[in-house]
Design a protein around this nucleic acid. Structure first.
Lengths: 201, 201
DNA sequence: CCTACCGATCGGTAGG
DNA sequence: CCTACCGATCGGTAGG
């Protein structure tokens, strides 16, 4: 029962509960119980509820910051393939849907704070993507009418939305489209809306 | 100060506060104060916090149920124009972004309950849209590869997402795409991804 | 529609 | 890392 283990356990349970019920819907007592410790112990490790929330968010951002470069290079390895990029995006979130829910909750609860975090840690990478898109536009591979910044924001937030609430908003339709179907359709939409048709030179 | 006025005022303030801070982040005391009454009065009118939440959601669903038919007929009047349909969807939510935030929060907090509500009140109308889309596919106007159910779910949830958190997730990009730009790009994406190119008969 | 009040739970501290 | 404890606020009730 060393300190690292406890910290990790607290963070894991906090992430799960925050994603499921939101920060204000989760008491630090509930997190402590889930982690198998008492409340004062949690406070000792994270300084209080706000410190815990910050730590959960920081861990998430760290994970993303380390994953994004891999994701980009992997996608670029087979040439600039949009499909694999969007698929990798889905993989990242579907591997742990709590990430998507947490992100969505945070953007509702603390929009300004999240905006700052995103700006600092992921914006440099998305800038690479839009830059590549403008190159593609000059070369004629990508449709001129595409707004690169808006396009990337839409695809990312749509992917997050599908993973976070896709299984439930599908109640809008009959038959309900599975998350797989929603993912496939988003990838299709993005490709068709992005690329010029093959024989249009 | 008749009862109808008070009920309306409570509902309005509750909607605003629930959208901004979430249900669990809003005390009924805060709602009562915002509505200019005391807490027991609120409880008298809505039976408790859960009754208030249900009433807020019911009002929202009612609004949508009445608006959707108008929206569909308006869109159909100029022929089945996708643009105007998506624009009307955006108008509905942008007229009061709290609706979008509330919907997003509810889909995170009470997914099963929302699923049921959507199924009962909106699904009949979305069924009309997917039906029209399949007709379009048989006539060759709409791409064969489109998955109607997944497509409609994606466009709707993406529109909700843009209105609810678009102003903030734009922090991902530089320069930040405005909500207008995100809306325009979604409409462009949806049209290109949906329709067969003009000279493809 | 309000005053007065309740038990339970909240986040957090003292002290070890 | 825990026991014991705190004031504040929570949702809700009694009674008028």
């Amino acid at each position: 029962m060393n300190a690292v283990d406890v910290r990790t356990r607290i963070l894991r349970e906090a992430t799960r509960l925050f994603a499921e019920r939101g920060v204000s819907g989760t008491s630090i007592q509930a997190v402590a119980t889930a982690a198998g410790i008492t409340k004062p112990t949690l406070v000792y490790h994270f300084g209080g509820k706000d410190g815990l929330r910050t730590a959960v968010l920081a861990e998430f951002m760290d994970h993303w910051r380390h994953e994004l470069p891999k994701l980009l290079t992997a996608a670029a390895s087979g040439g600039p393939r949009l499909d694999s990029l969007v698929e990798a995006l889905f993989d990242f979130f579907r591997r742990d849907p709590d990430r998507a829910r947490l992100l969505l909750r945070e953007s509702l609860d603390r929009p300004e704070e999240l905006r700052t975090l995103l700006r600092d840690s992921v914006q440099p990478f998305t800038a690479l993507i839009t830059q590549a898109m403008r190159m593609g536009q000059m070369q004629g591979a990508i449709r001129e009418k595409v707004d690169p910044e808006a396009f990337v924001v839409l695809v990312i937030s749509c992917a997050v939305g599908v993973v976070a609430v896709g299984p439930f908003v599908s109640g809008l339709m009959s038959p309900e489209p599975s998350v797989d179907a929603q993912q496939a359709e988003l990838i299709r939409m993005a490709r068709v809306a992005l690329l010029n048709p093959p024989g249009s030179t």
